[in-house]
Computed example of a mutant assay.
Amino acid sequence: MKDLTVKDFMNKILNGAAMGIVVGLIPNAILGEVFKALSGYGEIFQMLSQIVSAFSFTVPVLVGMFVAIQFKKTGVEMASIIGAAFVGSGAAQFVDGAWLLKGTGDLINIMLTVSFAVLIIELYNNRVKNLAIVIIPLLGVFAGFLGLLTLPFVGQLTALLGAMIENFTTLQPFMMMVLMGIAFALIIVTPLSTVAIAYAISLAGLGSGAANVGITATLFTLAYGSSKVNSKGTTFALFFAGPKMLMPNYLGNPIMTLPIVINATVTSIVAFIFKIQGTTASAGFGLTGLAGPINAYSFMSGSSIVNIGILIVQYLVVPLGIAIITHTIFTKMGLYKDEMYKFAAEGK
């Protein structure tokens, strides 16, 4: 730990967070809509739908576990980091005398909290080995307390960004859709929650459609780059876990902003032409669970075949085509290399 640079420390936190998100969200992303559609055919499907939904609530726990693994912590230390992550996530809230579980919590604050926990445990350095089983969990509680202290301020950061993005809705539709698409395309590869921002500003209609196609643009940009250096399984997982899976890659290589912005701009212009829309509930998901295209279809009128064709062009042909073009040009120009998209946990 002493030999770790700040960059190395942050990379371990980001890689742990990325793995926690992938494992926590993939079951619901793949099977959630399937079991929901089948729920009318028997209680077993209702139960399975609830199970995969509940599985996503484990994201704070899984982030804590994978971060602890990154830092090669012992079992007791890992358990304490996990406990701190869960407390600091804000997912569990005490309301009217009862505990309520609310979503997966705040990812930024989860990462802050596990950082506190790792640093505190490292500072303690197992000084009293015989009391480690007692002292280390207490250190985890203290880290969780620090996380709860920072939680309101992190929430204000999300609200502030949401307020800034809300200003885009006052612009004329074309500019609004382009800027909204770019904003959500970039936010999806940061610890910020696109879903939380969408709800904070009640994003709907064309704005929701722009947000979803922007996220889709990022997804295909990362997926095509990933296909060059990662296994098919890793690239396939991107379509369910979402772009946050390669969040460490993006934050460590800001040049990725260039192809993402270009792709988001083009896909948003196409979305303006096709008048792609969505709801507040669907905004921020992109292709995950097919939330974006399914909701966009519900706003479309006319021939079903034509509408499905439009959605295929919007959510597949355009973002994939631009991803191929930008990646090919920029790698040949030497702006970046394929290795930039290498998933940290590939092969592990």
Score class of each variant (00 low, 15 high):
V6G: 01
D8F: 01
M10D: 00
N11A: 03
K12P: 00
K12I: 04
I13F: 05
G16N: 04
A18I: 02
M19D: 05
I21N: 02
V22T: 14
I26R: 06
I26Q: 03
N28D: 14
L31W: 11
G32D: 10
G40Q: 13
E43P: 00
E43D: 11
I44C: 02
Q46T: 12
L48N: 04
Q50C: 04
Q50F: 06
I51F: 14
F55M: 05
F57N: 13
V61P: 00
V61I: 15
L62S: 05
G64W: 04
M65I: 14
F66D: 02
F66N: 03
F66E: 01
V67E: 03
V67S: 07
A68E: 02
A68Y: 02
A68G: 14
K72D: 13
T74N: 12
G75P: 03
E77M: 05
M78T: 15
I82R: 01
A84C: 00
A85F: 03
F86P: 00
G88Y: 11
Q93V: 15
G105F: 05
D106V: 13
I108H: 01
L112V: 15
T113K: 09
V118T: 12
L119I: 15
L119Q: 08
I121L: 11
N130P: 00
A132N: 15
I133P: 00
I135E: 10
I136W: 02
G140N: 11
G140H: 05
F145N: 08
F145G: 13
T150E: 10
G155S: 10
T158Y: 04
A159V: 13
L161T: 11
M164S: 09
M164N: 07
E166H: 11
T170H: 12
T170V: 13
Q172F: 08
G181H: 08
I182Y: 08
I182K: 06
A183Y: 03
I188R: 01
I188Q: 03
T190L: 07
L192F: 15
T194S: 15
I201C: 03
L206Y: 13
S208K: 04
N212V: 08
I215K: 08
A217P: 09
A217H: 08
A217N: 12
L219W: 07
F220P: 09
A223N: 08
A223R: 11
Y224P: 02
K228Y: 01
T234H: 09
F236I: 12
G242W: 02
P243I: 00
K244M: 03
M245L: 13
M245I: 01
Y250E: 00
Y250H: 04
G252V: 00
G252C: 03
M256K: 07
L258P: 05
I260Q: 09
I262T: 10
S268K: 11
I269A: 14
I269L: 14
A271L: 06
I273N: 08
G278A: 11
T279E: 12
A283T: 12
G284E: 11
P293V: 09
N295I: 05
Y297V: 01
F299V: 12
S301V: 13
S303V: 09
G309R: 04
L311T: 08
V313L: 15
I325M: 10
I329S: 09
G334C: 04
D338K: 14
D338Q: 07
E339G: 14
E339Q: 13
M340H: 01
